[in-house]
């Protein structure tokens, strides 16, 4: 079990993480929040990139801070990945095998298995610079799963990917999730909806909600309405989106006041917006 205990992190006077406490057991976790919510900072604390101001991060009861054995159990894919573009895919992964101190005799098998997992085995001798953006991201996933880490953290893994690559990413995650903690940080709600067992919603350095997708959805129960656009907007309404139907324009709104309007089934996105906007 991975535990984040009363974590505080500041950069000079700016407090980025405020008393964050979380628990992760085997499964897939979605870390949702708007830009600047503190997701990347939390992840960077988890991978020991940042020193903590206070609190601790423990895996099976031991602090991960400076513990190389525990750190080697964490696979990490940063927001951007594109290192060593002049090396081949094989050499690139070998570099990470050396960094992760994987035994020389196991390296080739590890690399092959990881490339099969991400469907890049036919590109093993290609230069990284010749790969497409989606393939480079898959190579990033391959380096994250090298050495069978017990914890895998993906930071904004689908940002900038086309729909096909996003589906492929979800399939890879579904394939590799056995006996592991997988944390996916994103601000794209639909990415976590399909694949995550638990969702953590963060904003302004705090954890606002921790629960299943049903629990997140239930936050918007009785708060989602559809109205015609020519109706005068109430100041309490939060307009999620506008759309056209039968040559009329409608709005999907969130409101915590009981409205005499057409009520809608909430989605996870509605729940997320209610939590983040405090509706």
């Amino acid at each position: 079990m991975l535990e984040v205990i009363k974590l505080h992190k500041s950069f000079k006077k700016k407090e980025v993480l405020k008393n964050v406490s979380l628990e992760f057991k085997n499964g897939i976790y979605g870390l949702l929040g708007p830009n600047g919510a503190g997701k990347t900072t939390l992840i960077r604390c988890m991978v020991n990139l940042y020193d903590l101001n206070s609190g601790s991060i423990e895996y099976c009861g031991s602090s991960i801070n400076g513990n190389n054995d525990l750190l080697s159990n964490i696979g990490y894919l940063p927001q951007k990945f594109g290192l060593f573009k002049e090396l081949t895919v094989y050499e690139n992964l070998k570099y990470f095998c050396i960094l992760k101190k994987i035994y020389k005799s196991r390296m080739d098998d590890e690399i092959k298995n990881c490339l099969i997992s991400v469907n890049l085995e036919d590109r093993i001798s290609h230069k990284v610079s010749s790969l497409s953006g989606g393939m480079i991201r898959r190579l990033g996933i391959a380096q994250a799963i090298l050495g069978h880490p017990k914890i895998i953290i993906f930071d904004e893994p689908t940002a900038g990917l086309d729909p096909e690559e996003r589906i492929r990413f979800k399939n890879i995650v579904a394939q590799i999730n056995k006996d592991r903690i997988i944390i996916i940080s994103t601000h794209i709600v639909e990415d976590v909806e399909a694949s995550c067992n638990k969702i953590i919603i963060m904003n302004e350095g705090r954890v606002l909600k921790y629960g299943s997708s049903e629990e997140i959805k239930s936050e918007a129960n009785g708060k989602v309405y559809e109205v015609e656009k020519n109706l005068n907007a109430d100041e309490y309404w939060y307009v999620e989106k506008s759309f056209s139907r039968n040559e009329k324009t409608f709005m999907r709104i969130l409101s915590n006041k009981k409205e005499n309007l057409k009520s809608l089934e909430p989605t996870i996105e509605d729940g997320y917006m209610c939590i983040v906007k405090g509706i």
């Binding site: 960077r44 990139l49 190389n68 990490y76 990945f81 594109g82 290192l83 960094l99």
Partner: peptide
């Protein structure tokens, strides 16, 4: 250039403490 400006350079600093 990779260690300072490379995309994902943080990986080169976090995989093990001594690195």
């Amino acid at each position: 250039r990779e260690y300072i400006e490379g995309d994902g350079n943080e990986l080169l600093y976090c995989i093990n403490k001594t690195g």
